[in-house]
Simulated assay, not measured.
Amino acid sequence: MRLRPAVLDAALIALSATEVWATRSMGGSLSLAVACTATAALLVRRRFPLLAFAATLPALSLGYVWLAPMAALYQVASGGTGRTAPDANGSTRSRPRVTPRMWVIGGCAAAVAVVSFVPWPWLGTIDWEPAPTILALLLSALLATAPTALGLLSSSRRELAARLAELAASREREARLAAEQAVVQERARLAREMHDTVAHHISLIAVQSGALEVTARSQEARDAAGAVRELSRDALDELRRMVGLLRLPVTNASGSSDPADTAGRAAPAGPGLAELPALLATAGPTVRGRVDAGGCPAPVGHAAYRIVQESLTNVRKHATGAETEVDVRLTGGRLLVSVRNGPPGERPGPLLPSGGHGLAGLRERAAQLGGTLDAGAQPDGGFLVRAVLPAA
């Protein structure tokens, strides 16, 4: 039992016992026993409200014990009303209808009014003059209506609180659904834009490089065109995979609305540790690397691949011709990824566009897996990217 109801019950029983003690001299031993029974009945008024109410009616007929019957009537009335019925649409704001519960409450109130007004033989001589009779009627009406009205008010407040909580939960569900719909629409828009614009341009690059590979006169030009064509094809494959991920539903089978989790369950993670040697081989003669890690989860291997890929791209952008060392190894249940480059070469490379989001994206990848990523300049003028990813 919660503390507040227990305190209220104890206070009510104490008040009822005080009333019995104060009126103990108004009747005999039988009347005292009846009054004590009414007070004891309040102990079970929450669990058996009708039984407790019936046990207090004899005390009410004594004419001077009122508190216990009024408390029992209040409990009956506050137990719930069921005053409205759902309409065809399931709404409860339709017209009120009389329910069995209302009949019970009305019957109990009528019983209190009748028992408190009837001139029982043990009450002695009754004065039927108009003034005393009217006062007796008013008292009976007050004893019956006041507890009933307060009980119905308490029941209505509880019902209102429950409805408000239900409404708040419904609005929260609607807001969550609206947010999910917005995410789905935005993902679909991004997928369309990537397919219709980026994929189109990369396809043109692949076609033009293929034509150049066939028509070029020198072997060096043909090799460069072939490399561009292969890279364009790989980029198209990656782009198609990303468009497929964006087209996946937001909510996965487990009920989660995490797109990353959904994508990870519904599609392969992409290139991983097995593809790192090929990536290093195509990076150029100034890149040396060591990959000594096996058995890592696919998402961890994919994150390591993207970290190395983005780091090498940054070297080509900002430190053309710099000596670069790549080290990927598994140590103590953690995958260590390190990409270190020296100062840029004497001949600067062409300026390439940069959005400035590469390192931020790498940090987000590492954080999603529970790892860390640090990047910063080195004293010799180079740059170091170091990531620690959980491999267990």
Score class of each variant (00 low, 15 high):
Met1Ala: 13
Leu8Met: 11
Ile13Thr: 10
Ala17Trp: 04
Gly28Glu: 07
Leu32Pro: 04
Val34Tyr: 02
Val34Gln: 04
Ala35Asn: 05
Ala35Pro: 03
Ala38Gln: 02
Leu43Val: 10
Arg47His: 12
Leu50Asn: 00
Ala59Trp: 06
Val76Gln: 00
Thr81Ile: 15
Pro86Glu: 12
Asn89Asp: 13
Gly90Asp: 06
Ser91Phe: 12
Arg93Leu: 14
Pro96Leu: 10
Thr99Leu: 05
Pro100Gly: 13
Trp103His: 11
Val112Pro: 02
Val118Thr: 14
Asp127Trp: 01
Pro130Gln: 03
Pro132Cys: 07
Pro132Ala: 07
Ile134Thr: 12
Ile134Gly: 06
Ala136Trp: 06
Ala146Leu: 13
Pro147Ser: 07
Ser154Thr: 09
Ser156Leu: 11
Leu160Ile: 06
Glu174Arg: 15
Leu177Asn: 11
Glu180Ala: 11
Val183Gln: 11
Val183Ser: 09
Gln185Leu: 13
Glu186Arg: 15
Ala188Tyr: 06
Leu190Ala: 13
Arg192Trp: 10
His201Val: 12
Ile202Met: 02
Ile202Trp: 03
Ser203Leu: 06
Val207Gly: 09
Ser218Asn: 10
Gln219His: 14
Arg222Ile: 01
Asp223Val: 06
Arg229Cys: 10
Glu230Cys: 07
Leu231Glu: 13
Ala235Pro: 01
Glu238Ala: 14
Glu238Val: 06
Leu239Val: 06
Leu248Thr: 02
Thr251Met: 10
Gly255Ser: 08
Gly255Phe: 04
Ser256Gly: 11
Gly264Thr: 01
Ala266Gln: 14
Ala266Arg: 13
Pro271His: 03
Ala274Glu: 15
Leu276Lys: 02
Gly284Thr: 04
Val287Tyr: 02
Arg288Cys: 12
Arg288Asp: 13
Val291Glu: 03
Gly294Ser: 14
Pro297Cys: 08
Ala298Val: 00
Val300Gln: 01
Gly301Leu: 08
Ile307Cys: 05
Ile307Arg: 04
Ile307Lys: 00
Ser311Val: 01
Leu312Trp: 04
Leu312Val: 05
Asn314Ala: 11
His318Leu: 06
His318Trp: 10
Ala319Lys: 00
Thr320Ser: 08
Glu325Asp: 14
Val328Met: 00
Arg329Gly: 04
Gly332Tyr: 03
Gly333Lys: 05
Arg334Asn: 07
Leu336Ala: 11
Pro343Thr: 09
Pro344Glu: 07
Arg347His: 12
Pro350Glu: 15
Leu351Tyr: 00
Leu351Lys: 10
Leu359Asn: 01
Gln368Ala: 15
Gly370Pro: 00
Gly370Met: 09
Asp374Phe: 07
Ala392Ile: 11
